[in-house]
Write a protein that binds this DNA or RNA. Sequence first.
DNA 1: TAACTGTTATACTACATATATAACACATAT
DNA 2: ATATGTGTTATATATGTAGTATAACAGTTA
Lengths: 135, 135
Amino acid sequence: MWLTINLNSETAIYTQIRNQIIEGIIAGSIKENDSLPSVRQLAADLGVNLHTVNKAYNLLKQEGFITIHRQKGAVINPAENYRADQDYLVKLSKELRPVIAESLCRGMTRTDFIEAIDIIYNEFKSLKKEAKNNG
Amino acid sequence: MWLTINLNSETAIYTQIRNQIIEGIIAGSIKENDSLPSVRQLAADLGVNLHTVNKAYNLLKQEGFITIHRQKGAVINPAENYRADQDYLVKLSKELRPVIAESLCRGMTRTDFIEAIDIIYNEFKSLKKEAKNNG
DNA sequence: TAACTGTTATACTACATATATAACACATAT
DNA sequence: ATATGTGTTATATATGTAGTATAACAGTTA
């Protein structure tokens, strides 16, 4: 399993799991209609409680990324199910506003900020290439 | 006082206070060497406990934005005290990564994302103009 | 029928947030 | 000198979230 968690991180374990599955989708290491491990399996692999994984899966379900079937487990939805809509744009804006505010306060220009996000975009591009070569 | 808090928000009150003071700095409604209200005064104005405000102030102090003097109260530092350094860039990157990941997953391109941040940059530009006219 | 799935329920620990009081230490204006 | 206002420290309490530990339930499938 490509998924790893950091117990010392400030980020909640269930959030780390959620985030890494989303990264897995954009990297291409998991695709539409792929199944995720069962909550018990993934919990055992990560050394955490089943409820922690369950919480991550339910969050992903609520956000539209997966559908949970009894027996088939959690399955990645087609991309149409979670396209950016107005609600998401509002949520995104609320997340970004304090981040941009702090960067401005610390003297970063818009150009500096875009430089910072481009590093991240390039990392994701590399992940995608990597997954393509391995899959 | 230009500061308002939302008790129903998911964001902790002390975080809301911190964020709005940072926005106040970039808007220009508070400037270098300006004093913030005392913890008791601001707590009374906002209808919250003194410790909640104190927590916000100590966070701002730890981040370099203000210096807390006994008697003089909390004073905005000169910008040199909180310029973006390497540690901050690492923190920024860690904040942005999952946000960008989700936006990519939801089909947003880099261009779409920059469009979203530009709306925020324009809001801050308006705030700055507004504060200039009033101050 | 047995095994595996998500789900629900209960109980517990630990930590973060927020409040409520009270007292302390320091500076300053009266 | 004394009263006032400042940040600071110390308790105590309530609430919510995160995480764990068990156990049982309800479907599906081999």
